[in-house]
Design a binder for these strands. Structure first.
Lengths: 104, 104
DNA sequence: TCTATTATTCGATAACATTCGAACTATATA
DNA sequence: TATATAGTTCGAATGTTATCGAATAATAGA
């Protein structure tokens, strides 16, 4: 992976609000081994209605939150797929693995 | 470690030039186990004349490079100590460990 | 097809980042 | 003490990012 891709990833995580969004998705996607699945993640590994949830618990306008989701997607950190009126979000494990490798 | 500290670290690494500087220090500080020490790192773990070296291999003005070193220090990623006319740089292992933990 | 809900796009604005060159400070050495 | 080398600070130009509200588009359901 090129250095410029890494800097893109770090840029996406450099804004505190956006990092917060990333973390909410990240935590909910990581069903601990042997642990219970959370209600938002049937099947584990993805978050239903991530955007709506985020709007509900962050003090930012919808448009700003939409922008932050786009940035996280552009950096390759998450993927989102439409599911009716809302979106289902998933962490891109590859990106996370790349970061881990970066610091080895 | 607070989320805002993480975003500071990621911000420091979000600029490609700065990431480049960080990597040069990082690589030179990490003497592989059983490997030879590099000439810049007698004793291992630190880089002698890091600023001067960086100036020599990056297409940026001294003042800009100085600024980037400051940013890396402010984020707690590296420390620099004067050594005569030049500086000796060291990676802050704690910061790196924090990032690793962040993605566990 | 009408309406409510959900999310995106647009245009504006304010704040912040990157970069430079010039002037300056710190240190070593002749 | 004069000079060379190394690095910092300052002010300015330029570019990028975060944020909002309003207008718009997509979807579900009545």
């Amino acid at each position: 992976m090129k250095l410029s891709n890494y800097s893109k990833i770090f840029k996406a995580l450099s804004n505190e609000q956006r990092l917060n969004i990333f973390m909410m998705v990240y935590k909910q996607c990581c069903v601990p081994k042997g642990g219970k699945e959370s209600s938002c993640c049937p099947g584990g590994g993805s978050v239903r209605g991530a955007f709506t949830k985020t709007c509900g618990c962050m003090d930012l306008s919808k448009s700003t939150i939409s922008h932050h989701f786009k940035e996280l997607q552009n950096a390759g950190l998450i993927t989102c797929e439409r599911e009716g009126q809302t979106f289902r979000c998933r962490i891109n494990e590859e990106a996370v693995d790349s970061i881990k490798k970066f610091f080895e």
